[in-house]
Simulated scan of single mutants.
Amino acid sequence: MIEFKSGKQVDFYKIASSRTKILTLLFFWMEIFIKNVSFLFIDELDAYFHYSLSKFILETLFSNDNIKQVALSSHATSLIDNEILRPDCYFVLNNKGKIKQFSEITDKKIEEYHNIEKMYRTEVFEYE
């Protein structure tokens, strides 16, 4: 329940937007349940959030010592960032359902100082 200055109380879930509900659930989930998670998979993390919030959530998850592995899917190229993950931790799924690491689908050497999002956008990683 949320109580306004007027004293009126309203059920939070009846007035909150879908994104606010998801963010609230994610916050609750991260504070309560994540303490016992060693492997975490999130499908389309960025679907409801601004890229900077998605990036913050990932950084928070990656800094959690309890989580040993994180796998996620995303359509947001803004999350392809060397500050989030090493270049060898990014994979692409083709339209046939096959998955390959970025380094497997390019003949260019990938270094940590490269802008791998820009490389992805310019189709350095071609995989059909």
Rank of each mutant, 00 (worst) to 15 (best):
Q9R: 12
S74Y: 15
K108R: 10
S54A: 08
S74K: 12
N95D: 13
P87V: 04
L26T: 11
L61W: 01
N82H: 00
Y90A: 13
S38I: 14
K100F: 11
Y48N: 11
F12N: 00
I67A: 03
Y48P: 00
K5V: 08
I34M: 15
E111I: 07
D65A: 08
D11I: 14
E112M: 07
I80M: 08
Y113S: 08
L61I: 10
D107C: 01
S74Q: 05
A71K: 12
L58V: 10
N94F: 04
H50K: 02
F91W: 15
N115V: 13
E104L: 11
V37M: 13
I22D: 01
N36D: 15
K109Y: 15
F49L: 15
I34R: 09
F125I: 07
V92D: 00
Q9G: 04
H50Y: 10
Q101E: 14
I110G: 02
E123C: 05
S103C: 05
L93K: 02
S73D: 10
Y120E: 00
L23E: 14
F49K: 02
F56M: 03
R19Q: 12
K21N: 09
S73H: 14
N66E: 14
I32N: 08
Y13D: 07
S52W: 02
R19D: 13
N36V: 11
E44W: 05
L40I: 12
T122P: 00
K8N: 11
Y127C: 10
I110Q: 03
L40D: 07
C89R: 15
N64L: 11
T20G: 02
F4H: 12
K109M: 12
D88Q: 14
Y127I: 03
A47G: 03
L26H: 05
V37Y: 01
A76R: 08
L61F: 06
A47D: 12
I32E: 08
E44Y: 12
D88P: 14
L53H: 03
R19E: 15
T20Q: 03
V124F: 09
F62P: 02
H114T: 13
S74H: 10
K21Q: 12
H50R: 06
K96Y: 05
E112I: 13
F56N: 04
K8S: 10
F33K: 05
F41H: 09
C89W: 03
D65Q: 06
L45Q: 08
S17K: 10
F33S: 06
V70F: 08
L25G: 13
L45H: 15
F41Y: 08
S52K: 07
K14Q: 07
E44F: 11
A16P: 01
S17M: 11
H75D: 05
F27I: 15
N82C: 10
F27L: 15
L26M: 14
L23N: 14
E117R: 12
F49T: 04
Y127P: 13
K96I: 05
I105T: 06
T122M: 02
Y90G: 06
V70P: 00
Q101T: 13
I67R: 00
Y51Q: 04
S63Q: 11
L72H: 05
E112F: 14
F56H: 03
R121N: 13
M30Y: 11
I84E: 00
M30N: 13
I57C: 01
V37K: 06
S78G: 05
K55Q: 01
T60R: 07
D88F: 12
